[in-house]
Simulated scan of single mutants.
Amino acid sequence: MELHRTPRWPQAWWWLALPAHLAIAWLWWRHGWMAGLPALMALHGVLLWGTLSPNARLFGPVLSQLPPDADGVWLTIDDGPSDDTPALLDLLDAHGAKATFFLVGERAAARPALVREIAARGHGIANHSHTHPQARFWALGPSAMRREITGCQQQLQAITGAAPVWFRAVVGHANPFVSAPLRDLGLARVAWSARGYDAVDGDVQRVLGKIAADLAPGAIVLLHEGAKHGRSVEIVTGVLDRIRETGLRTLVPGVAEDGVAADGSPPQPSPARGGGS
């Protein structure tokens, strides 16, 4: 199973959307608005779903979980670097665990030492946009989208010397203009299969309950750092404990010639593994 898949035909959606709209125009002309309007709404509903659903593959490939025969889970931490980063790195070390940090470019520029420390401790570094425009990422045009993705990529490469190979869309939203810069930069999009809404929910037990329900071999776990509720480190601690209790381990996939997953570190001959967290 090839995990690291960059978009191959980023403009393919045009060739699907244009004939669909022409067909609806013909339907409207031939049968009137009572036939044409519902068809138009249905088509735009599909396009909206493709934009807002994190696991939707309408505009390009997205990885939402590892193969079920994987012997661990992929721990991913979004929105850093932040004040929480040093504590998270110590916590991961204490558990013998590894993670991939999806970093925001302008935040990385403000704290380059933390970015280098993440890499030095053997964790993955990945692209999570340059400014994290949470409210409008889904609606960015082609130029703005390219600036967000390319800006972060250049910043992280300048700090670490290595170009990330994974990208996570802000809030998981990915409109038709995401795929072209991903293809040009060799980035593959990552979603998740286990989440607890920890970026906004500070109730540790409630968050852990939601994540634990989806913890299984091959799960991609979505976590955050620097959340306003101030309990991100506590939540990650609880997740690591749950992972250990289930007998799983953490994985940071590495690039291999056979297409095994990739993290933000230089190419590896085989997946790097954390301890029995």
Results as ranks from 00 to 15, higher is better:
A20T: 05
P164D: 04
V170N: 02
P54W: 00
D201I: 13
H123E: 10
M41R: 02
V165R: 15
A188L: 07
V178N: 14
V104N: 11
Q205A: 15
L91H: 06
D84G: 10
V239S: 05
F177L: 01
H130F: 13
W28N: 00
N127W: 08
G45W: 01
H4E: 09
T6G: 10
M1H: 08
L215R: 06
R206A: 14
G218N: 10
P217I: 09
T85K: 10
H173Q: 12
P176H: 03
P253Y: 02
A23V: 08
G172Q: 04
A97K: 07
D263P: 03
L92N: 10
N127P: 13
G196E: 12
P7R: 09
A20H: 07
R231T: 10
I125F: 09
R244N: 00
R242G: 04
W14C: 14
A97E: 07
G264N: 04
L47Y: 03
T237M: 02
S53D: 05
L103F: 10
I24Y: 00
G218L: 10
S82G: 14
I159E: 04
G276N: 14
L187D: 04
C152W: 05
G196P: 11
D90W: 09
L43I: 00
V239C: 09
L52T: 00
L208P: 11
S265R: 15
G151Y: 08
G96E: 10
E117G: 03
L3P: 06
D198P: 11
W26K: 05
A163R: 12
Q205K: 12
A39F: 02
M1N: 14
G196Q: 12
A212E: 15
V221Q: 08
A25K: 01
A162I: 14
H31L: 13
V178S: 02
R183M: 15
F177E: 00
G218H: 11
V46Q: 01
G124T: 09
I243L: 04
D93N: 11
L251R: 01
W33L: 03
L92T: 06
W192P: 06
A272W: 14
I77R: 06
A191Q: 10
A17R: 07
G264C: 05
G124S: 12
V171N: 14
P253C: 06
I243S: 01
A113I: 05
Q154N: 11
G96R: 06
R116T: 11
S179K: 09
P81D: 08
V115I: 09
D198W: 11
A212H: 09
H4K: 12
L22M: 12
A191F: 08
A99R: 07
Q155C: 15
L88Y: 05
W33F: 03
L37R: 01
V204T: 14
L114E: 14
E245D: 10
I211T: 13
G96T: 07
H130T: 08
